[in-house]
């Protein structure tokens, strides 16, 4: 009887927790949707900010482009390093000590607050390397931020590949590199791409690293990777922080959320496709 009671209490508890989270998420989304949908139109999406103070009219096109470009650079930079690190740890590193050390470093990296990463990017990339506030500085800083995230997931995926299948490949006299590129990557591609897209979503929503390394208020669409950019989270920060236009701020928030939603849906579809393949 007591056990039964515990069981029902527990069930109610998890039911309530799940519903609470669900309600909060839906509430935020609906709230932003209702307040922001009105300001979304062709002009808002495809033109630059205008008006006095600037941003009170016009659109957010430069911020959308800037955010997407920052995300692409961050993903490219982080995924190359993260995948290489994961391959090294899983297939080449034989020393447990080295493995533990690298894992420790990656864990520490994932714990660094994003504003500190921003300061790091500012000091190293913007000042010392002379990239200035630019797409490249911001992209790399965001890349450093999402690196641990991609690395951990890719490493997990690689570890989960059936050892017997890999051994069968070696047994054919095939080299390790060929096995990696022709067997292991094709087997893991959906997981890897899904990890990168999710990390991209994480990067696109971050404001702190971008403020110090890439963003200049109301910068136009960048001409090169060394141009400053505008990013959606920063745009949002300016619109609300300076009290420029609450209505445009809701619109911007909605666009940002929709982009994230699309990224997440892509990731879910990729995961689903992978399961279908098995």
């Amino acid at each position: 009887m007591r056990e039964k009671l515990k069981d029902s209490v527990f069930k109610i508890w998890i039911g309530l927790s799940t519903s609470l989270v669900f309600i909060v998420v839906v509430y935020i989304f609906l709230y932003i949707f209702i307040n922001g949908a009105g300001s979304i139109n062709g002009e808002f999406l495809f033109s630059a900010p205008k008006g006095m103070p600037i941003g009170s009219e016009g659109g957010i096109f430069p911020a959308i482009v800037g955010s997407l470009l920052l995300m692409v650079i961050a993903c490219a930079f982080a995924s190359i390093l993260a995948i290489s690190t994961a391959i090294y740890l899983v297939f080449y590193c034989t020393s447990e000590k080295v493995k533990r050390l690298i894992h420790l470093i990656i864990q520490c990296m994932s714990g660094v607050p994003s504003i500190i990463l921003g300061l790091f990017g500012y000091t190293l990339l913007v000042l010392h390397l002379g990239f200035g506030r630019s797409l490249i500085s911001g992209g790399i800083t965001l890349g450093v931020m999402i690196f641990p995230y991609i690395q951990v997931r890719v490493e997990k995926t690689l570890i989960e590949v059936d050892k017997a299948v890999i051994t069968s490949s070696y047994a054919l006299g095939v080299s390790k590199v060929y096995t990696l590129f022709k067997l292991i990557f094709p087997m893991c591609k959906f997981d890897i791409v899904s990890a990168i897209t999710l990390a991209g979503g994480f990067a696109i929503g971050a404001a702190a690293p971008v403020i110090l390394t890439a963003a200049v208020i109301f910068a136009p669409v960048p001409e090169s990777i060394f141009s400053p950019v505008m990013a959606l989270p920063f745009h949002l920060y300016i619109l609300t922080g300076e009290g420029i236009s609450l209505e445009k701020a809701y619109g911007t928030a909605l666009v940002l959320m929709l982009i994230l939603l699309v990224i997440n849906i892509i990731s879910v579809i990729l995961n689903f496709t992978r399961k279908e393949h098995e």
């Binding site: 059936d162 017997a164 299948v165 051994t167 069968s168 490949s169 047994a171 054919l172």
Partner: peptide, 14 residues
Amino acid sequence: RRMIGIVFQKSTPF
């Protein structure tokens, strides 16, 4: 390994 092939107990198709 090319000259001496091996097949394991558990089949391991790619």
